Amino acid sequence: MNPSLKAIALLSTALLTACTSTEDKVKDLLQRHMDAFVFVEGGSFMMGNPGLGWALGADAYPAHKVTLDSFSIQKYEVTQGDMDLFMEVTGYTSNYELYKQTRDMAPDRFSKELPAVVTWDDAMAFCNWIGISTKKTIGLPTEAQWEYAARSRGKMYRFATDTGEAVADINMAPASKLDLINPKSLPHPPGHFPANPLGLYDMSGNAIEWVSDNYQPDFYLYSPEYNPKGPAKGKEHDPAQTNIHPQKVLRGGRFYDFWGNTTVSRMSGPKNLLGLDTGFRCMKKD
């Protein structure tokens, strides 16, 4: 065979193999994510801080009745490896302006086996891609769905652990110091500690998870009872900061916290910013 033709044939074979390998990886990713959904039967519960010594911020009050339809939620937080593959095959780029610089600054935090570091838009884009690829309705959970699932269908569980209690290094990560310039503490790979009674992992004390809702600190005062989806608009930052988007809700606590990792704690963050403590899991409508 002509050397030039042989080289072209070898290159074509290599490209075909690479393409097939990528397709196989995507099929595996989609199958794993669909297999990871846990059905959560709908029902009613008292959402928010019930008192009882669960000292948290004022935005977790008052406890209020919520009634949800059934849904499914993933048992694991999405990993960085799966997020990277999604970005590779779709050409998606994070809307965080300093994404590359952040990866370069904290490469260990972006290890493929750890929870994905994402903005709200990144998380929603991933879940929507899973849905489009599988022809299902998939997105981020509402915070009501998230809390209902974390508390094993609304039980009075302060922590989303196997027992509802928190024991350092047994069923939840101990408190640790996070150095945002040179991170020394890291979340665990999803599934490190025992699951809650519904079979869901890391809903207390690993990565704090984006949910779909806009954030307003007083929303619990006027939240509707049935399938609440959050306020129409998120709390704004300083209007002069035009590059900072309205705030979304985050739930689940953080790997460097401990007592703040209760199932009713709430945090907020601008939808176009990412932190090294963020993560997410997807929800599927049933």
Rank of each mutant, 00 (worst) to 15 (best):
S44H: 03
S72Y: 02
F126H: 05
M283I: 01
M283E: 08
L198N: 09
T102M: 15
G191F: 00
E41I: 04
L114T: 10
A14R: 09
L98Q: 14
P50D: 00
P115C: 04
D213K: 03
A144D: 09
K177T: 13
P141T: 06
F280H: 08
R32T: 13
Y256L: 00
I208F: 14
Y76E: 02
P174L: 08
E143N: 04
L85W: 01
V167W: 00
P115H: 02
V89M: 09
A106P: 03
G91I: 08
G57W: 01
F280Y: 12
R266E: 11
E77A: 12
K136H: 02
P197Y: 08
S94H: 09
Q216M: 14
E209H: 15
P239M: 05
P228Q: 01
E209K: 09
A63M: 15
L114E: 13
A123E: 10
A125D: 07
V118E: 04
S223K: 12
F193S: 14
S21V: 10
I170M: 03
P197V: 06
S44M: 06
P115Y: 09
K184H: 10
W146H: 06
A207F: 03
Q31H: 12
F45V: 00
M87F: 00
M1F: 08
I130T: 01
A149H: 07
E225C: 10
Y157D: 02
G260I: 09
E88V: 11
T134M: 03
P50R: 02
D24V: 13
G139N: 01
M283W: 03
R251M: 07
P270M: 05
F219M: 07
A36R: 08
E165Q: 12
Q101P: 11
A36V: 03
I244K: 01
K65D: 04
K6D: 13
G43F: 13
N261E: 04
D202G: 12
R251D: 07
M172G: 00
S204Q: 03
K229E: 08
M203C: 14
D218I: 05
A116P: 05
F39W: 03
L30T: 10
V249Q: 01
G234M: 06
M83V: 03
G260W: 10
T79M: 05
P107C: 14
Y96C: 02
P141C: 04
Y256D: 01
P174E: 00
M105F: 04
T13D: 12
T93V: 14
M87D: 09
G53M: 02
